[in-house]
Simulated assay, not measured.
Amino acid sequence: MPPPPARSWSAWLMALALAMLVAASFATLPLNWSALLSADAVRSSSEFLAGFAPPELAVPFLVKTANATLETLAMSALGTLLAVAGGLLLALPGAGRFGRPARAAVRAVLNVLRSVPELVWASILMIAAGLGPFAGTMALAVHTAGVLGRLFADALENAAPLPEQSLRINGVSPMAAFLYATLPQTLPQMLSYTLYRWENNIRAAAILGVVGAGGLGQMLKYHLSLFQMQAAATVIIAMLLLVALVDAASFATRRALTR
């Protein structure tokens, strides 16, 4: 009979620390559950939600919503594409291929890029580029480049080094060895990361419109600020349909890549 596995006290201590953190969060935050579930709160919420029905279905407004939907989709797709290019460029030094000092410097840059939210990047870029989808697209690209650069760098570091080393020993150039040995190992994982971030960028692109970056978010902010709830309901439905469509397409693509 095999001996029982050794207990990992570090795992137990980590779980205990997380449990204490959750308990402290509940104890310190002023969570007023009674006010949330009171009769007045339920009635007010019901009256507010009732104002969204029925959604606006006039043909001119539907055409306008469809154009904003395409704009949101274009923002997310172009922002993700630019982020992939930037992430790949930063992933190579971030994976330690140009020495430890370059790795530390690039990792610090990636931390900054992904630590700043898309809304903050959009607010900064709109000062230079003005209102519209360009600032939103660049905000998505900058933030997502930080995320993908870190994920790509980790994937490259975790790749098996023997295939590339074998090619290098046999006289293959470093770039060719990387392209034929290491990159094929990590490419499916990189594509999966890219598709997942594209899904996130669809949602983020819709939110960026709130600060004037175009698309469905800008329409939603405009109609909500004027209390045009039925028009806002149509925009929200368009957001839900767009996210569902992209999620389905991304899921099907990931399944095809893993077969």
Rank of each mutant, 00 (worst) to 15 (best):
S225V: 11
V243Y: 07
Y193A: 01
L31W: 11
E199Q: 05
T69A: 06
A6P: 04
R107L: 15
P4M: 15
M14H: 11
R259F: 03
H223L: 06
S10K: 14
L220Q: 06
P133M: 08
P30W: 00
D154G: 12
G79K: 01
L16K: 00
V246R: 06
W33C: 11
L16V: 04
A129L: 05
P30C: 04
G149Y: 00
N158H: 14
A139W: 00
A85S: 15
A177V: 03
A68Q: 03
T258L: 03
G132F: 07
G51H: 15
I127V: 14
G94N: 04
R255E: 01
N201W: 06
R100C: 10
L179W: 04
G215S: 04
A135T: 02
E47M: 13
A252T: 09
A68K: 03
A102G: 08
S115N: 08
R114I: 09
S173A: 15
L36P: 10
V235I: 14
A23Y: 15
G130F: 04
A176Y: 12
V147A: 15
V59S: 11
R97S: 06
E199Y: 04
A35F: 03
E199V: 00
M219K: 02
L226G: 14
S25D: 13
L82P: 03
I202S: 05
V246L: 11
G94K: 01
Y193G: 00
T186G: 09
T186R: 05
T186W: 10
A176G: 08
I202T: 07
L119Q: 05
A204Y: 02
Y222K: 06
F48H: 07
N158D: 12
L226I: 15
I127T: 12
A177T: 04
A231S: 08
F227W: 15
P2L: 11
L167S: 08
M229I: 13
L31H: 12
Q165R: 14
L49M: 11
S45P: 08
Y196N: 04
L156A: 08
P101C: 07
L191S: 09
L110E: 00
F98G: 10
L82R: 05
A15G: 11
A155R: 07
L78S: 03
G215W: 01
L16S: 05
V243A: 11
A181D: 05
L125G: 00
L216I: 03
L131C: 05
A50W: 13
G94H: 02
S8H: 13
F227A: 10
W121Y: 05
A53W: 15
L195N: 06
L37P: 10
A11N: 13
A139V: 01
A160W: 11
V63H: 09
A155C: 13
G51P: 14
S8N: 14
A238N: 03
